[in-house]
Amino acid sequence: MKFTSLTAVAMPYEPVNVDTDQIIPARFLKFPRKDGYGKFLFHDLAEDPDFILNRERFREAKILVGNRNFGCGSSREGAAYALFDRGFRSVIAPSFGDIFYNNCLKNGIVPVRLSEGECTRLRKLLNDHPGTQLTVDLEKQLVAEPGGETHPFTVDGFHREMLLKGVDELGLTLTLMPQIEAFEKGYAAEAPWAVRGSEQML
């Protein structure tokens, strides 16, 4: 999925250690993706009409500014599906659950690590002025505030390239099959038990 630069309303989300069970409760994971996962986003919390996601000013939000260890816990990719299907294309936080971070990258959501101070500043800005737009520029690797203040970030070169060009990662790896097979041959000679099929042991 392609991503170059995005300017959109950003929604602040204060809690630390937001786990993927909050982002999407387990009972919704059995549904096919084509049904759309947007309605499951923060489902149980969103039943409260005052929940931030329900506020008019954040209806069009495409960027979420969170707090420490955002997306910790379960590996459920449904968390990334729910964010994406609801319209989010970038999540900014001081740190992320590692699996969630990767799941974002594979689903066209740019995870941006900024310092704790920067995230606090951005959330304050968004709380004080709901509806404020931020820019996430992956080309320049910058988050920009409307006032012109910018915050540099980095995404590893490999995934940055993939997102900028909209390259399909699995498609790319399939072109590397000769290298994978050569590796496998060498490895099999050293550790035959590792590459042997286990069917016969059943």
Binding site: S75, R76, E77, A80, D98, I99, N102, N103, K106, N107, D156, F158, E169, L170, T173, L174, M177, I180, E184
Partner: peptide
């Protein structure tokens, strides 16, 4: 041993490999 998402799982099933940043 580490957990992966379902896109990563698809990648492993198809190629027996996975792109990862060193931890």
């Amino acid at each position: 041993a580490f957990g992966i998402g379902q896109s990563e799982n698809e990648h492993v099933l198809a190629t027996q490999t996975l792109w990862q940043a060193p931890q």
